[in-house]
């Protein structure tokens, strides 16, 4: 049986893992290669590495991290942050990444999703959607949450699938960093209406939150950062809780 995935996320800035609240107030959270190896050992099903500087001059530092992580772990990982063209994807994949996630560039240039999916296969293309609850409506936000677009999250989620996305990473900007639980309503709405797997992100604080997002949110995978970096909960603790509640995990 296909299992639900737990995915630690490493936000990487200048070669270090950092973590903030609502996409700001960054704190250092350790060496990404050491963290990746630790999570792999502890039973993480996959990893996500996001380059949160993503400026041209810092790119080589990130590529080195990707290569070092690929050498250190034998689980799949996705990389993202500032990816805007096929050439960058090719470089990241050649360093050992399995999938890439695109966000802001796909909003600016939705055709990018199709081009990447044609060139590298849809299984390789994750579209990251940051959603924020504004006056009762889940709108897509961009540029690390600082710009509110007019797109409705559900509409954009359907569109990216039509364009060739193989997976959606849905982050609730509203819940991110709160540790009060995932945003279940929007996660479920997206998961029920797209043909591809959905990774829920933002708000994880307790093992019960993961159960909720898999059962009520119907997510295929759940991503978290801070609670793992600061050892608030362990991956195995979450998995044994899920097993107790009859959720298939590895």
């Amino acid at each position: 049986m296909l299992t639900k995935r737990i995915i630690p996320c490493l936000d990487i800035k200048e070669g270090r893992t950092v973590k903030g609240v609502n996409f700001g107030n960054l704190r250092d959270a350790g060496d990404p290669v050491e963290l990746a190896a630790r999570y792999s050992e502890e039973g993480a099903d996959e990893l996500t590495l996001l380059d949160i500087t993503a400026t041209l001059e810092k790119r080589s530092t990130f590529l080195q991290v990707v290569e070092d992580v690929a050498a250190a772990v034998s689980i799949p990982f996705t990389v993202g942050g500032g990816i805007a063209n096929e050439h960058e994807v090719e470089k990241l994949l050649s360093k050992g990444a399995d999938k890439v996630s695109v966000n802001t560039a796909s909003l600016r240039d939705p055709e990018l999703i199709t081009r990447l999916s044609d060139a590298f296969g849809d299984q390789c293309v994750v579209v990251a959607i940051d959603a924020r609850l504004i006056d009762g409506e889940w709108l897509v936000v961009s540029h690390a949450g600082t710009r509110i677009t007019e797109r409705k999250t559900i509409d954009w989620a359907k569109e990216v699938c039509d364009r060739g996305a193989g997976e959606i990473l849905l982050t609730s900007f509203t819940a991110d960093g709160s540790r009060n639980g995932f945003s279940l309503d929007i996660t479920r709405e997206v998961a029920e209406n797209v043909p591809v797997p959905v990774i829920a992100s933002g708000g994880a604080g307790l093992p019960a939150h993961f159960l909720d997002v898999f059962v009520e949110g119907m997510a295929d995978a759940a991503l978290a950062a801070g609670i793992f970096h600061y050892q608030v909960i362990g991956i195995e603790e979450i998995k044994s809780f899920l097993r107790k509640h009859k959720i298939a995990v590895r």
């Binding site: 049986m1 299992t3 639900k4 996959e46 997976e167 591809v196």
Partner: peptide, 10 residues
């Protein structure tokens, strides 16, 4: 069911 088949299966 979801396609791609993505993740850990037995």
């Amino acid at each position: 069911f979801k396609v791609p088949h993505m993740g850990w299966n037995s």
